[in-house]
Amino acid sequence: MFYSTQYSSPLGVITLASDGTHLVGLWFDGQKYFGGTVTQPMEEKNDLPVFHTVTNWLNRYFAGESPSAASLPLAPNGTDFRKEVWQILLEIPYGEVITYGQISEKIAARRSLAHMSSQAVGGAVGHNPISIIIPCHRVVGSNGKLTGYAGGTDKKLWLLNHEHAELSHKAARS
Rank of each mutant, 00 (worst) to 15 (best):
T79D: 10
D29W: 03
V140R: 10
D19I: 01
E43L: 15
A150I: 07
I133D: 05
G126T: 05
V140N: 04
E43Y: 08
A114L: 14
K106V: 13
S118L: 08
H137R: 06
K170P: 00
M116G: 01
Y33W: 11
E166G: 00
H162W: 09
S66A: 14
T15G: 05
G152E: 07
V54I: 13
K145D: 08
L26Y: 03
Y149R: 14
M116E: 14
Y3N: 03
D47A: 05
W86I: 08
M1L: 14
Q102N: 10
I88R: 00
G25K: 07
A75N: 10
E166P: 00
E166Q: 11
I107K: 02
A114D: 14
A70P: 00
Q40F: 11
G36I: 03
G12F: 08
L157E: 05
D29E: 15
P73G: 00
K45C: 13
S66Q: 13
L146R: 03
R60H: 06
P41H: 14
F28M: 15
Y149K: 12
M1N: 08
F81I: 12
L16G: 03
G141F: 01
F2L: 11
H127F: 14
T79A: 02
G64D: 04
K145S: 12
V121L: 06
N59C: 03
A124F: 10
T37L: 13
F2M: 08
M42K: 04
